[in-house]
């Protein structure tokens, strides 16, 4: 069953495009990774789900949550969706948690707003904390954000995200600011809780391997478009789009030490600077004239003119 659906979503600010064409669906309980470099529009895509777009952004196409177009939601409906159905986890937990209030205040805020009494809210908060692996929950509830490490605080944010029993979690680079060992822990918890509760997840990252480990499917974004969507477990065997392959090939570790990494010339483009045809045409080693002129449609898993030629 489809929970969330993007259909030909385009977002622009004035005459500057930010998202050129995003079509993607997320099933209930499914985890989809959005992978891409800076400027690819992955954050903007998930933000459009909760209409957290920059002032004056023009949106065409549709984002549907449980079949209802988000653009048609009134203020009350949007608020309801943001507070109950969808939860967000950002890169920097310290920017999300009010620094002067306790962890308990932060965790119970939404529940209290929904009319749960204080004692019940605190009990639920403590339960949620222990589920995300935070020991000594009662002591943590009384602490303030500066007393917690980044990894611990991010787990608090995940606990808060789970508290309202959402149907979808939007996680925007949730572990980028953390150390690798902490990242593993946080990602493991996110994965475990998501599966246990069958919550859908949109996981933004620049790390293909990380996305492959926690997601069912991976959507690779470049310059405001999704260029390839494929099952996570077939990332290495079935990636066909030249950009996906370039990303996979440019990580050190894919070639023996000392050998040159396969690189893509140029710098990552944004929706504004990308060529009119295929967004990757100006950096693609295989590009032909038609790539530069005509926008490729999705064929199977990838949007590329040369799927047959480039193997």
């Amino acid at each position: 069953m489809t929970l969330l659906e993007f259909e030909n979503l385009r977002v622009s600010l004035g005459d500057r495009p930010i998202l050129r064409n995003v079509t993607l669906s997320v099933a209930a309980g499914e985890a989809v990774g959005l992978v891409g470099e800076s400027g690819s529009g992955k954050s903007m895509t998930v933000r459009s789900v909760v209409r957290l777009l920059p002032e004056g952004a023009a949106v065409t196409g549709a984002v549907r949550f449980e079949g209802a177009d988000i653009a048609s939601l009134g203020a009350a409906g949007l608020r309801r969706m943001r507070s109950r159905d969808v939860a967000m986890v950002f890169q920097d937990p310290r920017a999300v948690v009010n620094p002067v209030r306790t962890v308990g205040d932060f965790l119970t805020e939404v529940l209290r707003d929904q009319g749960v009494n204080r004692a019940d809210a605190l009990r639920k908060a403590a339960g949620s904390l222990s589920e995300v692996g935070v020991d000594d929950a009662s002591r943590r509830l009384a602490q303030r954000p500066y007393e917690l490490s980044g990894g611990l605080l991010q787990r608090v944010v995940i606990a808060a995200a789970l508290l309202t029993e959402p149907k979808l979690i939007l996680a925007d680079e949730p572990t980028t600011a953390l150390d690798v060992t902490t990242q593993e822990e946080v990602v493991a918890i996110l994965d475990e809780q998501r599966r246990r509760r069958s919550v859908a997840l949109m996981f933004i990252t620049h790390d293909l391997e990380l996305a492959a480990a926690v997601c069912d499917r991976i959507a690779v974004m470049y310059a405001g478009e999704i260029v390839e969507i494929l099952p996570a477990d077939r990332l290495h065997t079935e990636a066909r789009h030249p950009y996906t392959r370039a990303l996979l090939g440019s990580r050190p570790g894919t070639v023996p030490p000392g050998q040159r990494l396969r690189t893509v010339p140029g710098v990552p483009q944004s929706a504004l600077t990308a060529p009119p045809g295929c967004v990757f045409a100006d950096r693609c080693p295989h590009a032909e004239d038609r790539c530069r002129d005509t926008r490729p449609a999705f064929r199977g898993s990838a949007a590329c003119h040369l799927l047959e030629e480039v193997r």
Partner: peptide, 17 residues
């Protein structure tokens, strides 16, 4: 440290770390 680096076939685990 080595075990926590995402790589093909990697399954994050909270027990290891």
């Amino acid at each position: 440290l080595v075990a926590s680096v995402p790589r093909p076939g990697w399954v994050p685990s909270r027990a290891v770390s």
